[in-house]
Structure formats: C-alpha cells, structure tokens
C-alpha cells in the first residue's frame, strides 16, 4: 500500500473522532489500515444491527451503510482538494447470510477518480473469515472541488 503522510493520517483520525454524533459513532468504527490504495475498517458486533430476536443475524442495511461510510473515507484519503462528497449511487450484493457475532471487517478503495466523480468498490467479511465474503458493493460519488477541505468543514463546522 502507498505511504500516506503522518499529517494526513492524524487529520483522518481527528475527522473520524470529531464527528461525535450520528451513525458512524453508533457503528463504533475503528480504522485498521489507511493508504491511498485503500482502507480497512473494523465494526464491532452490535446487537442493535440484527434482524432476529437471538441477535446473531445482521441486517443487510447496516452492511450497506458500512460500505457507504468507508467509501467516503477511502475517497477522503485518495483524493486531494475535495470540499464536498455525495453518494450518487450504490449497489450491494449480499453474498451469504451475515450470521455471526464476530466483528465485521470492511475493505474499500477508490478505483478511479475524475474531477467530478469517484468510483469505489469494497468487500465485507467477519473477522477471521476473509475467504467467506458476506457482502460486496460498488458506488459512485459526486465530488465538489474547492478551497474548504472536507476535513475543515467537518472539524470547524463550515457548511459543506
């Protein structure tokens, strides 16, 4: 994986933590690896995200939400000078039933960026079962280039 600057890594960690509210906070995401080639994030098991009363089967929607979030992070890392980012479309295949109480691992990367659009792909599996993918997704994002970086907007509360 390509090196990224220590400064940017610190920015990313700050941005993630500075949110302080919303879904990402509830997902309790932990960044495991970050580079301009891709990111790997861990989501701890959360019974609130299950569909069954036994609470062992994750709802597909939370996997979709996880992909959408981590695509955003991958774009932030890979693309310089982005002021806003909006998901244009998203496709997710649920490859097998997500039945486990293990942590969820997601790998995502931006495989093409243009001035206006970023294209992403990612995979999800349960920790320790990389050979048994539970979901795979692709998405495109509309980018706005500008002086105010996404990071500044997130941390200083400027409108994005």
């Amino acid at each position: 994986m390509a090196e990224i600057s220590k400064e940017k890594m610190e920015q990313i960690a700050q941005m993630w933590n500075a949110r302080g509210k919303g879904l990402i906070t509830h997902m309790a995401l932990e960044i495991e690896e970050v580079s301009s080639d891709g990111v790997r994030v861990r989501m701890p098991f959360n019974p609130d995200f299950c569909v069954d009363t036994d609470q062992t089967l994750l709802h597909g929607g939370i996997l979709t939400a996880l992909l959408d979030s981590v695509f955003g992070l991958a774009n932030f890392v890979a693309i310089e000078g982005v002021s806003t980012m909006a998901t244009l479309d998203l496709r997710v295949d649920y490859l097998r039933a997500a039945r486990s109480r293990a942590d969820v691992i997601v790998n995502a990367h931006c495989f093409r960026q243009t001035r206006h659009i970023a294209f992403n792909a990612g995979s999800i599996w349960f920790d320790g079962h990389e050979d048994a993918e539970i979901a795979r997704g692709t998405a495109s994002f509309a980018l706005t280039r500008g002086d105010v970086s996404l990071f500044e907007a997130m941390t200083k509360g400027k409108a994005s």
Binding site: G22, L23, I24, K158
Partner: peptide, 24 residues
C-alpha cells in the same frame, strides 16, 4: 433520530440509513 445522521455538519440522513429504511 440523531443516530441516523451521516453528515454531522448539515444534520443530513446517512445514505446507508436511507437504503436500510428502503430495504426494510
């Protein structure tokens, strides 16, 4: 709900929550 927020600056819904609600 506060837990539905994806963009904390604008208080917009997270795209994943919208997709989850549609799936439900």
């Amino acid at each position: 709900e506060e837990r539905h927020i994806g963009n904390p600056v604008m208080d917009h819904y997270h795209g994943g929550i919208i997709a989850s609600f549609m799936e439900a």
